[in-house]
Computed example of a mutant assay.
Amino acid sequence: MPELPEVETVRQGLQDLTLGSAVLGVEVFLPRTIAYPAVEAFRYSLVGTCFTNWQRRGKYLLGSLNSGASLVVHLRMTGRMLWLKGSVPLSAHTRVCLGLEGEWDLRFVDQRTFGQMWLVPAGVAPEQVITTLQTLGPEPFSTAFSDAYFQTALERSKRPIKTALLDQTLVAGVGNIYADESLFLSGIHPTTPASRLSSVAIAQLRETLVRVLQAGLNHRGTTLRDYRDLNGLNGNYQGQAWVYGREGDPCRVCGTPIQRLKLAGRSAHFCPHCQPELP
């Protein structure tokens, strides 16, 4: 699933390419992609509008329209937003296509079909329609994600620290890739109970997490299978990953083979030498 760096890269592309272009037509090829409102209302309300701004909240993309409405997109596992000339043939996995001025299309392509789109009416906050937005934790790059906040959030949790980092109510936008990378660079084993981390370790982990997310953003995200940016290009972070996706490969620091385990149904990659378990 795309994480903060991937979604932010897509947001930047949308901001650069779509602003001011009127939506001339809307095609919905998979009705269940439209979570709200009904498909016909979705089509009717979008035609004739223009995008004025794009924001990101966690893993959600929020597009402001000159009508006052908002188009919200969640890519889920395999969703892509692609900016293509209208003459380019539609992919078999195209779920929604917005035809814009200049014969450009903004297409939502989603192989696994878990992605969703919402058109929130003018005068209504997206949080009122998409209730999960209400529960998101602070953004990692915000001042709200402080050492004090992070310590308070973790000190009473007996969950493995890797599981805690994936909790979107604790911090928004973090997923498997950047959690694994941050734990490695902090020397913390993924199964360590969050409550056993010292205040120094928590501060270091918070700083490292922010640094790793910024590195992912600088490399325009990570492409292992499905993720592409708005122009269909791969991210580049995977080439420098420390542990994620490197099971059996030698650790870049000590040479020990990288291991993988399952925690709450999710994979965790780590180096058993650089990230020793607590006694």
Rank of each mutant, 00 (worst) to 15 (best):
A164V: 08
R225C: 08
V10W: 00
A41H: 12
N218Q: 14
L24F: 13
A215S: 12
H273M: 10
T143G: 02
V72A: 06
R252S: 14
D16N: 12
L209Y: 04
G123F: 00
Q12F: 04
F145H: 00
D180I: 05
T78R: 08
D167H: 02
S91M: 10
L24I: 08
I188D: 00
T18D: 06
L197T: 02
P160F: 04
L14R: 00
T163G: 01
A144D: 15
L233C: 13
Y44T: 14
L205S: 02
L46E: 03
M1F: 04
L136C: 09
P31G: 14
R107Y: 13
A41G: 12
P272Q: 02
V23A: 09
E27S: 14
T113N: 05
V171C: 02
H74W: 05
L17E: 10
L4T: 06
C274D: 02
S21F: 00
L61C: 09
S186T: 10
G235T: 04
R246A: 04
Q15D: 15
W104T: 15
T163A: 13
H74Y: 05
T132V: 12
L61V: 04
Q134D: 04
V212Y: 00
D226S: 11
L90P: 07
I177S: 03
D16G: 05
A215H: 09
K158I: 07
K85H: 10
R57K: 12
L14S: 04
V7W: 09
M1S: 08
V210I: 15
V47F: 13
Q259F: 03
G13F: 11
G86Q: 12
V23R: 04
N53C: 11
H273E: 15
V129G: 11
E181M: 02
G63L: 06
R246K: 14
H74M: 12
P279V: 14
L61F: 09
P2Q: 04
V72P: 01
Q204K: 14
D16S: 14
P276D: 05
R225A: 12
R220N: 11
L30Q: 08
H74E: 14
Q55S: 13
Q15K: 04
L61M: 11
W83R: 07
L75S: 02
W83T: 11
A69Q: 07
F42S: 11
E139D: 15
